[in-house]
Design a protein around this nucleic acid. Structure first.
Length: 600
RNA sequence: GCGCCCAUAGCUCAGUUGGAUAGAGCAUCAGCCUUCUAAGCUGAGGGUCGCAGGUUCGAAUCCUGCUGGGCGCGCCA
C-alpha cells in the first residue's frame, strides 16, 4: 500500500516539476482524523523547493486529488502534513495482491540467498538447561526462522564444549557419584567442592553404572561418556520446543582435526602474539579490547578462547556472508576478543554479529523463584516446559526485546484466560476456526476452497482496520529481521488477535458484524477476510509462537458445558513430554558459577 | 574506575528507527451474554517519557553530561 502510494506521489511531484526526496515517507497516523496514511514530503522538500511547506502541500494535494479511484479525500493539516483518506476498494485490492498468491510474501526478499550462520544455545553438556538457555534457544530459533522467511539461507549451529576442564570436572563428579552408590552404598560421602552436583547426575550415573565401572580410572573418559548423554537430553529438550540444529559442532573435533594449531599458526604468523611469563598472549587490545588475552597458559593448556577462535576460523573458512552469535549478556566482554580474532585471521569482523540476551527472572505469581547458585538449586527448562507447555514457553521467551531482562511468570504462563497472551492468541484463532466450521455447516466452502471472492462488501471500519493490520505484516517482518527483534512478531500477533476479538465480539450486539450473514456475497467476502487472518497464524515466523496444536477447533465445547482440559487451546504440547529420564532434576551446579543467564 | 545494556501509567512492557493529542495488558472503577466460543468485549480514570542541557520546523526517539539499576572486566569457562 505504501509503495503504491509513494509511486503515485513521486509521479505527481514530477508532474509539478518539483524535486524528489531521497525517500517518500508515509506513516500511519495515530489519530484517525489524520487519515489512513500521512506524508511529510512537503516538510522535507520545503527547502529544496523554496516554498513554505503548507503551500507546497496544498499544491501536491490538489494534483493528487485527481486519483479518484484510490483517494476518498486528501487534506493538508498542521505544519504541512498531507493526510490521505483511502477508499475501501484500495484496501481490498492490496489485501488480495498481498495474500492471494501464497508466494507474494517471498517478494520481500531481503536476504537474496545471503548465507547466514546462526550459532545459539551452545550450552555446556554438563547438566540440564535452565531458563536462560531456553530464552537463548527460542530467540535464536525465531531469528533463524525470520531470516529464512525473508530469503536468507540459514544454518544453525550449537557449539558443544565437549573438551576441557568442564568435561574433566563432569567426569570427576560422575566418579564420585559412582563411588557413593557402588562401593560404599548407604554411607554419606561429602562431595568435593568443585564438582557438579545434582539429582540428574545421580540418575545418569545410576543408569550408566556398568559402563562407568571399567573406565573409572580415567575421569576424562567418564566425563565424555556423561557429556554425550547429557547432550542427548539437551537435544531432546530443544526438540520439544521445535528447535532443530543443522549441526552440533564439537570442540573436541577441533583438537582432533588440528584446527587449533592451524588457527594458532595464523595468529603467530600475523605477529599479533607474544610470549610473556611462560604464556602465549594475543594482542586483542589492538582491536579495541581492554587488554591482551592469553591463548596458551603457562601450564601449556589452552584458555577457553583458543578453541573458540579455531571454531570461528572454521566458520569463516566455510564462507558464510553473516555470522550471528546468540549468547548471554554475561558474555558481553567476550565479543571484542572474538572480533579481534576474526580480524587477525584476515576476515571482516563486521560480518560477525552478536545478539546478547539479558537475564531471565523466573517468577511464580509475581514472586521471584529463587535460583540460588550457592545451594545449587535451579528450575530446569525441562520442568518449565512440563509445567506450562511448549507454546507458552516459546511465546514468553520471544515476547521481550533481547536486550531487556525478562520476567517469566509460571502462573501466568499456564493461566487459561486473556491475562495470558498465549491463551489470548490461541483463543482468537479458535474462534476463527469455529467460524469456518459453522460456515461449512451452512454450506459455504472451506477456507481452502474459498477461491476468488469479491471483497466489495467489506465496508465496516473494523473490517478495514483488520485489513490494515494484515497489510502491516511485511513491514513488521522487515523490522524484526533488520533489527533481529523477534519480539515484534509477538506484539504484532497480539495486536492482530485483539483487533479480531473486538470485531468478533461486536457481532453480539450488531448483526452487521457477523461473518455468517443471510447474504451470500457478503458472507464470502467476510470469510475471505477471516481466512486471511487465519493464514497469518500459520505463517512461519508467526506460528512459531503459537504452535500448530491450536489448529483444531474445539468440538464438544458449548456454553455451560464442562470444559475438558484437552479441549483447551494452549495445553497442547504440554503432555507429550519425554519420558522422565531426567525429569526430577532438582539441583545442579556449576563449579564455575554459571548463572541463570544463557551459557556461552 | 572502565565497557555493554536498561530507565515510559500503581505493576509488566510497546512505541513503525525524528512526526501531529505518548499506547497496550494487568490492577482499579462503570457497563455488556436469546444470535459465528462471555475462557470474551466496551468505556473511564491514571504520565514533568529518570534528571539537566544541546541539535531543528518538530525529540520518548539523535548528541553531551549526571543519577539510579543489571551484566561484564581471570593464565575461569
Amino acid at each position: 500500500m505504501k509503495s503504491i502510494l509513494s509511486n503515485i506521489i513521486a509521479k505527481h511531484l514530477e508532474g509539478l516539476g518539483l524535486p524528489q526526496p531521497a525517500e517518500i515517507v508515509l506513516d500511519e497516523p495515530k489519530a484517525k482524523e489524520h487519515g489512513d496514511l500521512s506524508s511529510n514530503v512537503a516538510l522535507v522538500l520545503a527547502k529544496a523547493a523554496k516554498q513554505p511547506p503548507p503551500k507546497l502541500a496544498a499544491q501536491l494535494a490538489e494534483s493528487l486529488g485527481r486519483e479518484t479511484e484510490i483517494f476518498e479525500k486528501i487534506e493538508v493539516k498542521g505544519p504541512g502534513f498531507i493526510n490521505f483518506f483511502l477508499k475501501p476498494t484500495a484496501y481490498h485490492a492490496s489485501l488480495k495482491s498481498l495474500w492471494q498468491d501464497p508466494n507474494a510474501l517471498k517478494k520481500l526478499d531481503l536476504g537474496r540467498g545471503t548465507r547466514v550462520l546462526v550459532e545459539f544455545v551452545s550450552a555446556n553438556p554438563t547438566g540440564p538447561m535452565h531458563v536462560g538457555h531456553g530464552r537463548n534457544a527460542v530467540v535464536g530459533d525465531c531469528i533463524s526462522r525470520l531470516l529464512e522467511e525473508v530469503g536468507f539461507e540459514v544454518s544453525r549451529e550449537f557449539y558443544v564444549n565437549d573438551h576441557g576442564v568442564q568435561i574433566k570436572t563432569l567426569g570427576h563428579s560422575g566418579c564420585h557419584y559412582h563411588t557413593v552408590m557402588t562401593e560404599v552404598r548407604g554411607v554419606e560421602i561429602a562431595l568435593p567442592e568443585d564438582v557438579y552436583k545434582g539429582q540428574y547426575l545421580e540418575d545418569l550415573v545410576t543408569e550408566l553404572k556398568d559402563r562407568i565401572a571399567p573406565i573409572k580410572h580415567d575421569p576424562l573418559a567418564v566425563g565424555k561418556l556423561l557429556g554425550v548423554e547429557l547432550l542427548e537430553t539437551i537435544k531432546e529438550e530443544l526438540l520439544r520446543l521445535n528447535i532443530v540444529f543443522s549441526r552440533y559442532y564439537s570442540e573436541s573435533s577441533l583438537y582432533d582435526g588440528g584446527k587449533i594449531d592451524e588457527a594458532l599458526a595464523v595468529l603467530r604468523a600475523s605477529g599479533l602474539t607474544y610470549e610473556k611469563e611462560g604464556a602465549l598472549w594475543f594482542k586483542t587490545s589492538e582491536y579495541g579490547d581492554d587488554k591482551d588475552r592469553v591463548l596458551i597458559k603457562s601450564d601449556n593448556t589452552y584458555t577457553y578462547l583458543t578453541p573458540d577462535i579455531a571454531y570461528h576460523k572454521d566458520k569463516f573458512d566455510r564462507g558464510y556472508d553473516l555470522y550471528l552469535n546468540v549468547m548471554g549478556a554475561d558474555h558481553g566482554g567476550y565479543t571484542q576478543r572474538l572480533k579481534a580474532a576474526v580480524a587477525a585471521l584476515g576476515h571482516n569482523p563486521d560480518k560477525l554479529e552478536f545478539l546478547l540476551m539479558q537475564l531471565v527472572n523466573l517468577k511464580r505469581g509475581g514472586e521471584v523463584v529463587n535460583m540460588s547458585k550457592r545451594t545449587g538449586d535451579y528450575v530446569t527448562l525441562h520442568e518449565v516446559i512440563d509445567e506450562v507447555g511448549k507454546d507458552a514457553v516459546r511465546f514468553f521467551f520471544m515476547m521481550r526485546s533481547h536486550n531487556a531482562t525478562l520476567d517469566f511468570d509460571l502462573e501466568l504462563a499456564k493461566q487459561q484466560s486473556s491475562d495470558n497472551p498465549v491463551f489470548y492468541i490461541q483463543y482468537a484463532h479458535a474462534r476463527m476456526s469455529s467460524i469456518f466450521r459453522k460456515a461449512e455447516e451452512a454450506g459455504y466452502p472451506s477456507a481452502e476452497a474459498l477461491g476468488e471472492v469479491d471483497l466489495t462488501p467489506l465496508q465496516l471500519e473494523e473490517e478495514i482496520t483488520l485489513i490494515k493490520t494484515l497489510l502491516a505484516y511485511p513491514e513488521m517482518l522487515k523490522g524484526a529481521v533488520q533489527f533481529r527483534e523477534a519480539h515484534r512478531v509477538a506484539f504484532y500477533l497480539l495486536d492482530l488477535a485483539k483487533t479480531f476479538q473486538n470485531y468478533y465480539t461486536r457481532a453480539k450486539g450488531d448483526d452487521r458484524y457477523r461473518v455468517l450473514t443471510p447474504h451470500r456475497e457478503t458472507t464470502l467476502a467476510k470469510l475471505y477476510l477471516v481466512k486471511t487472518l487465519r493464514e497469518v497464524f500459520f505463517a512461519q515466523p508467526v506460528h512459531l509462537a503459537i504452535g500448530r496444536g491450536d489448529r483444531r477447533s474445539l468440538p464438544g465445547l458449548s456454553l455451560g458445558s464442562a470444559i475438558r482440559e484437552d479441549d483447551l487451546p494452549g495445553r497442547h504440547g504440554a503432555h507429550h513430554g519425554q519420558p522422565a529420564r531426567h525429569a526430577r532434576v532438582g539441583s545442579a551446579r556449576s563449579p564455575h558459577g554459571e548463572g541463570a543467564s544463557a551459557a556461552r
